[in-house]
């Protein structure tokens, strides 16, 4: 049996770039929430996104799903809306940022509690 090379590459964590958000930092599971800034002047699609996120946070994927927009389009629109101050990324405060191992342990415990 041919031996497979074990996957050693760690998925890289997309962080930073907060001062200059660029499109490629927006992942399917980037969380964003509305900031309350008035949506006047936005395109219809951006208005729909702003309205959807007005009352709380959602992932980029959920925004795409609820509004029936392609993911790639949604990323661009969300990125623009962050740049224009209508949405803000929801990220842990540095003091409260769990390590990957802590995250996995919490997920494991949470799943076990569901059995």
């Amino acid at each position: 049996m041919k031996a497979r090379r074990r996957a050693l590459v760690r998925p890289h964590v997309v962080t930073g770039g907060r001062a200059h958000p660029s499109r490629n930092i927006f992942d399917l599971v980037t969380l964003v929430a509305g900031t309350g800034r008035a949506a006047a002047g936005l395109s219809p699609e951006k208005r729909r996104i702003a309205a959807l996120c007005r009352d709380g946070a959602l992932s980029v994927a959920e925004i795409a799903g609820h509004l029936a927009l392609p993911i790639s389009v949604t990323k661009v629109l969300v990125s623009d809306l962050v740049d224009s101050g209508h949405l803000s990324p929801r990220v842990p405060t540095p003091a409260d940022e769990p390590s990957k191992i802590e995250i996995l342990q919490e997920v494991l415990d949470g799943l076990r509690a569901r059995l």
């Binding site: 399917l28 599971v29 969380l31 729909r48 009352d55 946070a57």
Partner: peptide
């Protein structure tokens, strides 16, 4: 998207970390 449902679709305010599988 029905805005009446909006309160049921959002994440709790305390959630700040997303894990993708």
């Amino acid at each position: 998207m029905d805005s009446a449902l909006a309160s049921e679709i959002h994440l709790p305010d305390t959630v700040r970390t997303a894990v993708k599988l």
